[in-house]
């Protein structure tokens, strides 16, 4: 999806328009840092990834053809930069692999479902109940956000990149798939696993003291 104005911004960058660069940096910066954090450990390395990304963007600006949106293209460059830096830090797994399936069913342990000998196999033994507290309510919001931030930070890098772009930055599935170089189906698998873990963390937080996770 090409954003309105992308072509004008790219044209301005090619002309050496510093104001256009300042604006696009301002717009993309928080998102680029959020994504970079999934790949490298330190704040310093995150800063390096972002700076290297802008250098690569400028060097490649004449090759940008507008087949994707500018932000998709910039993020795909960032992911390459971040991954090569992460390789140097020797802490990366192949991005295209989905990784091992996680335990349980989207965060619910196998004991939550009836086995093949149950009355209704595959149905709940103890059904979850709705959260009684609204995690978005103002009194809880700061605390809840910290729980979610921690859960997102603990995700494997591929899941973290997908949930960040989809649910924090509001990208569409196809756009995320294009930026990360994965299929839309794999993008959704990664998103589901990521959301399942964040849901689990929220559930533990919201039901603490109630004796049982929903």
């Amino acid at each position: 999806m090409v954003m309105a104005g992308d072509a004008a911004v790219v044209e301005a960058l090619r002309r050496g328009d510093e104001q256009a660069f300042a604006e696009v940096v301002e717009r993309f910066h928080p998102m680029l840092r959020r994504i970079a954090r999934g790949y490298v450990r330190t704040d310093e390395a995150v800063g390096d990834v972002v700076q290297e990304t802008w250098i690569a963007v400028l060097r490649g600006i004449d090759r940008f053809e507008g087949r994707s949106s500018l932000r998709t293209w910039v993020v795909s460059i960032l992911v390459n930069v971040a991954r090569s830096l992460a390789v140097k830090e020797a802490r990366t797994v192949p991005f295209t692999s989905l990784g091992p399936a996680d335990d349980g069913v989207a965060g619910f342990g196998p004991e939550r479902f009836q086995g093949p000998d149950g009355e209704y196999p595959g149905h709940w033994t103890t059904p979850p109940t709705p959260w009684t507290e609204d995690p978005e309510a103002s009194a809880l919001a700061g605390e809840t956000r910290a729980v979610v931030a921690q859960a997102v930070a603990a995700l494997p890098e591929s899941q973290r990149a997908v949930i960040t772009l989809r649910d924090v930055d509001g990208w569409t599935g196809p756009e995320v798939a294009a930026a990360l170089g994965i299929s839309e189906g794999n993008q959704r698998v990664l998103l589901h696993r990521a959301r399942a873990k964040v849901r689990l963390a929220l559930d533990a937080h919201l039901t603490a003291g109630e004796g049982r996770a929903s």
């Binding site: 928080p30 059904p127 978005e136 649910d167 924090v168 930055d169 959301r195």
Partner: peptide, 22 residues
């Protein structure tokens, strides 16, 4: 199914809260 409806609602809430990280 109340159980699955609760899970759907929890996923929606999870997405909304994750969005506030921005």
């Amino acid at each position: 199914c109340d159980g699955c409806s609760a899970v759907l609602e929890q996923f929606r809430t999870t997405v909304a809260v994750t969005g506030t990280l921005a």
